[in-house]
Write a protein that binds this DNA or RNA. Structure first.
Lengths: 145, 145
DNA sequence: CTGAGTTATTTGTAAATGCAAATAATGAGG
DNA sequence: CCTCATTATTTGCATTTACAAATAACTCAG
């Protein structure tokens, strides 16, 4: 056990990076990335989201998101549309190909949860997830203090 | 609560990113970064580590580490030395300035733990950290499966 | 004591990322 | 209807990062 093992930010980052790396490797042959999956998952829950909305739900920077969506559009996974209600905004829509990819990745994501949480009881898993949400909330708006 | 809120990798990444961002902002005026802090903390525990050793304990890629250490050397925080025992290796040593910075950041890191874990009991915090280590271990070597 | 194979670190290079400035469109006053 | 302040997205650019190739030094068999 290393010296940094006591630090929460380190433990968090380390575990997150490892899961992300494994997941990424698995979906790469499908032409997907972790970020692409995040966008697809968000659109799966609700299609036609705006960029700013996606930024919020995926925690991906808007500028990064723009370029990510550029790529996804080129791959035919999503389509941009001007929002009818407010023409400043763009709405994103999963194409049939996008939805097909979502259906393929959904079970993979589920399997990864299982692997990552191997040895955890249902209750322990819930506690962990709740703790991570609390942590996130605890850091909310701390940047201006 | 967003649609991704059920996914562990997302929760992990999101919480980790937020803590990292807040911590980074706090130590930036000192001329430090999260990565610099990781190296300093590792050297605080044991000075004279090799690059490969640091890679292991900090989870920072070796090539990234090389350039990070380049910068730290320029700032006078650490000094590279050829390992006397094995001249292929380089050992890293904190300078007085490096140790001074470590002493300054240590309490900041401790404070961040407190803020992040606000509302957590001692026991809950321990459970969370243990869970994160288990998670990390669960993903060990999964990449070749 | 020399060459083949191994280990440690650095460098080359291309992709990802994030901030800040630029662009585009809205809405409210006058 | 203009103009100004606001909101939404994109683009410019400099930094960070990671993989892979290059370098350097070790080990050991012959």
């Amino acid at each position: 056990m290393g010296p940094l093992d006591g630090y929460l930010p380190y433990l968090l980052n380390r575990a997150g990076a490892r899961i992300a790396a494994a997941f990424s490797e698995e979906v790469r042959p499908l032409g997907a990335t972790l970020q692409i999956w995040r966008v697809l998952a968000a659109l799966h829950e609700r299609d036609g989201r705006r960029m700013g909305d996606l930024r919020e739900t995926t925690s991906i920077e808007v500028s990064t998101l723009t370029r990510l969506v550029d790529g996804m559009e080129k791959k035919g996974l999503v389509a941009r549309r001007r929002d009818a209600a407010d023409a400043r905004a763009v709405t994103l829509h999963a194409t049939p190909a996008g939805r097909r990819m979502t259906r393929i990745i959904l079970p993979i994501a589920a399997r990864y949860e299982k692997v990552a949480l191997k040895g955890f009881s249902e209750a322990e898993a819930t506690v962990l997830k709740t703790a991570l949400r609390r942590l996130f909330d605890n850091m909310d708006g701390l940047r201006k203090s």
